[in-house]
Design a protein around this nucleic acid. Structure first.
Length: 286
DNA sequence: TTCCAGGAGCATC
DNA sequence: GATGCTCATGGA
């Protein structure tokens, strides 16, 4: 990777990233494609613009220092994606097809609190409405940021949600998930669970910690562990991945499914991302 | 009107 | 450990 500093942006050369697939893979909810190959998101408390080209991409509103300290890790650049994609391609034919179709799709390593709240909201919900609810949460409780003539809002910190009530959240449309959000804020602010520790403890133990929060079960916990806590053996089982495992792989028992996940080892999370995106876009042009 | 969406809690067996 | 019911909300 080569990093070039320009006047108003930084240019990253030598990394193949499929931003379109990455941002539409259901792992993040605050990136949008504003026009061809240009994306805007709010990350790490600030708006960021990406202009993607064939052999490089430009990042606006990110300093060299910020890139090295944060975005390098955020975009998973410390991993060898050739190795990851090769492993998946050689594992089986379905993964091989998914990888060839969406090569360059990456896992994003996201802020834990944002990830926790986002995936609590995601339960029994659709992606369009998840994005809408998260935007609403940011607009009401986040910090207003003016940038390039537009207004953005940061994702609220736990402290910014200290006084919210269930009624407020219900009025905003969160429904029965309102109490789950309160549970997450309470557990985190009152140190009933220690987010910093979760990076260092093993998968099973980390999952148990997260499930102390009301509204976090196996699937949501796996998403949080995968997208925020570097547990790449996590394989979130949702309606879509269950569908691909049953209808494409023809697995019929839970034992077959867990054997499959175990066979993927530390690549399970990457496999899940590709399979999820693959089945969702099946028979769709994209 | 009914079904579905990146499910989870709870009761029951 | 597996199954069934219920939980808000809004679009198809």
């Amino acid at each position: 990777m080569q990093l070039i500093e320009k006047n108003y942006f930084i240019r990253i050369v030598g990394e193949k990233v499929n931003f379109h697939a990455t941002f539409n893979s259901g792992q993040c909810f605050r990136w949008s494609e504003v026009n061809n190959n240009t994306y805007v998101g709010v990350v790490n408390q600030k708006p960021v613009i990406i202009e993607a080209h064939n052999d490089f991409f430009d990042l606006y509103n990110v300093s060299v220092d910020e890139f090295k300290k944060y975005f390098y890790w955020y975009f998973d650049f410390d991993k060898d994606y050739n190795e990851i994609e090769n492993f998946l391609s050689e594992h089986d034919e379905v993964l091989s097809e998914a990888v060839s179709k969406y090569s360059g799709m990456r896992i994003l390593n996201q802020e834990p609190f944002e990830c926790i709240i986002s995936f609590i909201i995601s339960q029994n919900n659709n992606i369009k409405r998840i994005k809408m609810l998260i935007d609403r949460l940011c607009q009401h409780y986040g910090r207003k940021i003016d940038f390039m003539g537009n207004t953005f809002y940061s994702f609220p910190e736990p402290e910014e949600l200290i006084n919210i009530t269930e009624d407020e959240l219900i009025k905003l449309g969160f429904g029965y998930r309102a109490k789950y959000i309160l549970s997450a804020v309470d557990n985190i602010l009152n140190k009933k669970i220690n987010l910093g520790e979760i990076y260092d403890i093993p998968y099973e133990q980390a999952k148990k910690e997260l499930k102390k929060i009301k509204g976090i079960g196996d699937k949501v916990a796996d998403c949080i562990l995968l997208y925020s806590f570097n547990k790449y053996n996590a394989f979130p089982l949702d309606v879509w991945t269950k569908r691909v495992l049953k209808e494409v792989y023809n697995f019929q028992t839970t034992k077959q499914i867990y054997n499959f996940i175990n066979s993927l080892g530390e690549y399970a999370g990457y496999a899940q991302l590709f399979l999820f995106h693959f089945i969702r876009n099946y028979k769709k042009e994209d």
